[in-house]
Design a protein around this nucleic acid. Structure first.
Lengths: 222, 222
DNA sequence: CACCACCTTGCCACTGAGTGGCGTTTGCTT
DNA sequence: AAGCAAACGCCACTCAGTGGCAAGGTGGTG
C-alpha cells in the first residue's frame, strides 16, 4: 500500500528496500508476460513464484492478491494522481473538473520512466479480457476516487454533502477509462503522449454526452 | 444469467422452474441475513448451503460466485433496466441521458414486488463495507453498461466510434450509485419512491458537476 | 571485525472458494 | 406407465490466500 515506486525520496533508499523493489518489479514483469502469453487463470501463483524464485508467502507480502500484481502499473498511476492533486493550485477560475484533468495528465507524465507505457498497455488489455482483473481494477479506482474526494474537500473548501464533486470524480474516472480503451486499440507503440492525447479527447466529449440525442433508424423498432 | 425473476411471462412457469426460483430466493434471503448479522467473509458457503438444505454444487449452478448471491437484488434491477431500454420510444427531442434516466426509474418501479427495497438496502450496505462485493458490483455494472451501449447503438442510430453515448452511460451509472448511497443512509424504512427521489436528485446534480469551482480555505495549503 | 537486534524470507499446514465427474432423484411428456 | 431430460447430491480435486515459526540476510554499534 505504500507508494515508494512513484517518487524517489532524494537520498537513495537502503539496500533492503532496493532489493524489495527489485523483487516487486520482477514479479510485475514476469506476471504481465505470463498472463499475456497464456491466460490469467491458467497461470498459477506457484508457477509465477517459481519463475521469480520467490516463495508464495513473499508474493503475498508484496501484493494483496493475484489481480493486484497484474494491475500494478495502473495502480501506480492513480497513486501519482492523488499526489498530484495534493499540490494543484486552487483557482476559482478553473473548474474542479479541469483541475482533475490537469492532475491526471500530470500524473501520467510523472510515470514516464522505463517502459511504464508498455506495462500499462499490457495490463489494460489484460483487464479487458479478464473479469477478475477488471473487477479489481474498478474497485481500486473506486477507492482512489474516495481518497481524491477527501483531498478535494480538504483543499478546495467543498461541502461534504454536495454530490457534485463526487460526480466530477466519477466522470473523470469514466473519461480516463475511455481514453485507456481508445489508447489500447492503437496499433502503434504505446507512448504516454498518445495516452495524454486520448485523455484530452475523452474529456472534450463530456459536455456533448449530456445533450446528445438519438434518431430512430429507418426501421424504427418500438 | 437468465432474467426469469424480473417479469413473470403471463402463463405460470412450470413446477420445476418454480422450485428453482424458490431455492434461489431462499439462498438470497438467507445469504443477506447471514452476511448482515455477521460478516461476509466469516460466513462460509458450506454454512449457507446447510441452512438452505442445498448442496454446494447446486449453489454454484444458481450463482456464479459467493458475491453474486449477495448482489442479486442489485443485478435484477440492472437486468430490468436493459429490458426497459429496449422499449423506450426514440425521440429526437429527448436527450439520451434523459432517456436513460427514464429507463432506470421505470426499471426500479418494475421491481416493486415483495420487499425488494429491503433486500436492495441490505445488499447496498453490504457492498459498502465488503471490498469483494463492491468489486463484483462494479464489474457487473460495467457489463450492463456495455450491454446497454449495444442497445443504444442499435435502436438510437449512434456512431459506434462516438465516445459520448458510452460516457452518458457511465454518468448514469455514477449518478445511480450516488443515489443508492444517499438512499442507504436514510434512517426511515426504504421505499422505491424514496430511491426514485434520490435518483432524480443525483441526476439534477450532473450539469453542475462539470462547472463547479473550488475556493481555497482560509489557510491555503499549496 | 564481531556481535546483536530486527527485518525479511522460506517452509509447512490449513481454510475455503470454485470445478469436474458421475450416479441418482424428480418433474415433464406421450 | 414408461421413457427422457433436467436438476440434484456426493466426492475428490485445484488453487488462492493466511498464520505460525524457524532461518537467513541487513543495518547498526562497540
Amino acid at each position: 500500500m505504500d507508494i515508494d515506486s512513484v517518487s524517489p525520496p532524494g537520498p537513495r533508499p537502503t539496500l533492503r528496500e532496493r532489493k524489495k523493489q527489485r523483487t516487486r518489479e520482477a514479479l510485475v514483469d514476469t506476471a504481465l508476460r505470463l498472463f499475456t502469453q497464456r491466460d490469467f487463470d491458467s497461470v498459477t501463483l506457484d508457477e509465477l513464484c517459481d519463475r521469480v524464485e520467490v516463495s508464495k508467502r513473499t508474493f503475498f507480502r508484496t501484493f494483496a492478491s493475484k489481480e493486484e500484481v497484474a494491475m500494478a502499473p495502473y495502480e501506480d498511476m492513480w497513486k501519482a494522481f492523488i499526489a498530484e492533486l495534493e499540490t494543484r493550485p486552487v483557482d476559482a477560475k478553473r473548474s474542479i473538473l479541469q483541475v482533475l484533468q490537469d492532475a491526471v495528465l500530470a500524473a501520467m507524465r510523472t510515470m514516464n520512466t522505463g517502459d511504464w507505457a508498455h506495462r500499462l498497455l499490457s495490463c489494460t488489455r489484460l483487464a479487458g479480457r479478464t473479469p477478475a482483473i477488471e473487477a479489481h481494477c474498478l474497485y481500486f479506482c473506486g477507492v482512489t476516487v474516495r481518497a481524491a474526494l477527501d483531498v478535494l474537500h480538504r483543499r478546495f473548501g467543498l461541502d461534504p454533502h454536495d454530490l457534485r464533486p463526487r460526480l466530477a470524480l466519477d466522470i473523470l474516472a469514466a473519461a480516463f477509462h475511455r481514453a485507456l480503451e481508445t489508447w489500447a486499440d492503437r496499433p502503434q507503440d504505446p507512448t504516454v503522449e498518445h495516452l495524454a492525447t486520448d485523455t484530452l479527447a475523452a474529456f472534450a466529449a463530456i459536455p456533448g454526452s449530456l445533450t446528445l440525442t438519438g434518431v430512430a433508424p429507418a426501421n424504427q423498432g418500438g
